[in-house]
Design a protein around this nucleic acid. Sequence first.
DNA 1: TAGAGATTAGTTTTT
DNA 2: CTAATCTCTA
Length: 666
Amino acid sequence: MSHPLNAPQREAVRYLDGPLLVLAGAGSGKTRVITAKIAHLVEQGLAPESIAAITFTNKAASEMRERAAKLLAARKGEAAGKVAISTFHSLGLAILRAEAKSIGIRPGFSILAPDDLETLVADLVATADRARARAAQWRISAWKNALVAPATALAGAQSDDELAAAKAYARYGDALAAWQAVDFDDLIARPVELFDRDAAVRERWQARFAHVLVDEYQDTNPAQYRMFRHLVGDRARFTAVGDDDQAIYGWRGATLDNLAQLPRDYPALKVIKLEQNYRSTVRILRCANALITHNPKLFDKRLWSEHGHGDTIRVMPAADEESEAELVVHRLSAHRFEHRGRWCDYAILYRGNHQARVFETALREQNVPYAISGGQSYFDRSEIKDIVAYLRLVANEDDDPAFIRAITTPRRGVGQATLKRLSEIAATQGASLFAAVSSAQLREGAPAKARDELDKLCALVNDLRHRASREPARRLLGELVARVGYEDWLVATLDRRDAEARCKSVADFIDWLGRKGDADHKTLVDLVQMIALITMLEGREGEDVDAVRLSTLHAAKGLEFPHVFIVGVEEGILPHRESIDAGSIDEERRLMYVGVTRAERSLHLSYCSTRKRAGGKVDCVPSRFIGELAQQDLRFADAPLPPDEAARERAAGSERLRMLKALVAK
DNA sequence: TAGAGATTAGTTTTT
DNA sequence: CTAATCTCTA
C-alpha cells in the first residue's frame, strides 16, 4: 500500500495521449492504478464530474469511491464525490432516466428482477415448468446482451425451445412496455439503442465525459462494449483495465472478443502490462502461473513477486462432504491458533452457493464466527419485497406485478375473482390494473369491500406520489407502512418471534432507506430504482467483524485474504460438470486461477472421495486442476486424522453412530 | 390461512 | 434420500 507506484503503474496513471489498455495481473495493484489515475486526472484540471469510472459490482464501485476520496482528500476534498463512479447498470439507469422522454418511458419506470418476470415468461412460453421458463428467460437475456433483436432471434432459432423463446421475446418486450418497466439487461440495451439511432443524444453524452475508465474490462459483454464505445466516441479518451486470465463471466454473455477486438477498434491503443504481484508468496504465484499456462493466451503475461517462498500448498483429501467441512474448519482453527491470526484472515471459497451449507454447520459446531458474502439477498426477503412493491407502485402506477403484490399483501378482501375481473377490464381498455380500478364496469361485479379496498390503495398511492418529490422519503415511508397496516398484519398472522423479526427488518429497511434519502437528497422514486440494483446491503455487516469469510469463487474476485481454503476441488464441481460438457474448461480454469490468486500467504485445497447426490453416494475424483499446479509446491496431506484426542473421540463417536444407523436401516 | 402431509425434483456462477 | 415446494384440511 505504502509503496510508491512502480514504473508501469506510473506510466498507466500518467498516460493521457490516447486510448489505453492496462493488462493488470491478479494482485498487481489494479484498483490503486485506477484510483491514482482518477486523482491524476483531477490534478490535471479535468472536472471531476467529467470523469466516469465504470465497474461491474456495487461493491467494487463503493470501494473505488472510498479510495478515490482518500487520495483526493488532501488537495481536492470536494472533488471525489463528483466523479461519476458507477456500475454499468447504474450508469445505464442514469442515462435511461435522463433520456426517458426520447425512449418513451415514464421517468419513474420500474426495474424488474428476473424473479418478478419468471411468471410472465412462463405464461409466454405456455409452460408450468419452472426450469423451462427459466431457460427461456435465460435465452432472452442472452439475446439482449448480444444486442439481438426479437426478429433476428426468431429468424435464427435452432430448436423448438429456442423458437418458443424467440416468440416470447417480442411479447416480453410488449409486456414490459405496458408496465412502464425494464429488466436488468435493458439498462444497458436500451441506452445503446438510443445512442445507435440518435446522434444528438449520443454526442451530448460523449461531451459529458472527458475520460472513461473501465474496470474488469475482460468481463464486458457485447452490449456493454457498445455502450462503452458510444460513450468514448471517436476521441477515445479511455483507460480500460482488465485481465484475460480472470474472465469468469462468459456465461453472462461476457466475451474475450471485446479484449481481442480493442486493438483493432482503436489502432492507437497503448497497452501496458502490470506483472508485479504484491499479494502472494512465490509458491502460490508459481501454482497460479502453472495452472494458467494450460489455457490458450491472448496476451503473454507472467506474474512475479518479491515475496518469500512461503508455505507449501496443502492438498487435503476427505471421505465425504461432511468430513471435508469438519476437516477444513478444524485445520483452519488450528492454523489460526498456531499463527495467532484473526478469523477474518481466512476465507473458504467454493464453486456453488449450495456448498456453503455443510461448512456453515461445521463452523457453527466448532464455534467459529463466519460471514457469508453473496448468497440470497437482503432484498429477497418477503417483507422487504412487500414494501418495495408499494414503493414501485408509487413511482409507477402501471407496474402491474407490483400492484398485484400490494393489493394482496396484506390480504384485505381482494382475491382471485376480483383480480381476474380487474385484469379483464384492463385488457379490454389496454390499460394497467391501477387504471382499471376507476372503471365503471368494476362497480357492477365486485363486492363492496373489494371495491373499497381498491379505491383506498389507489388513493394512498396517488397521495404519496404527489408528495414524493417534495417531502423527505423517510416520512413518506413511515406513513406508507402505517397506513397499510403492515406491521399489524405481521403481528396478527405470524407467531410472536417471527413477527418481531420481520417488523425489525422493515424498520431497519425504512431507516436505511431514509438515511440514504437524506444523505444524497434522493426522492422516493430515486430510491426505488436504486434498490433494484442493489444485491447486498453494502458495508452493513461483514467488513469490520472478525469472522471467517464464506464466498463463491465468483464473488471472491477482487478480494484478498492471508489464508485461503478452496473446497470441493473435484471433477464435476471445479471444473463444473456443465462446463465440461459444454467444453468451456478454460473458464473454469480461470475460476480456479482467481481462487488461487486470492491467497496472500497460505493456500489449502480440499476434495472428497464420495459425495451424496440424488439419494445415493457418488464417487468423486480430484480435479484435473490440482495436477496442473506446480507439483513441487504442493503437499498432500494423509487421510484425515483429527489431531487432538477430543476430536478423535468425536469422530469415533459419530462413526459408531453411523454404523448403528446402518444396522437399524437393515 | 397456517400447518401438516404428500409429492417431486435434484446441476453453477449474478448485475 | 433429502429438501423444498405444493396441496389439502382444519
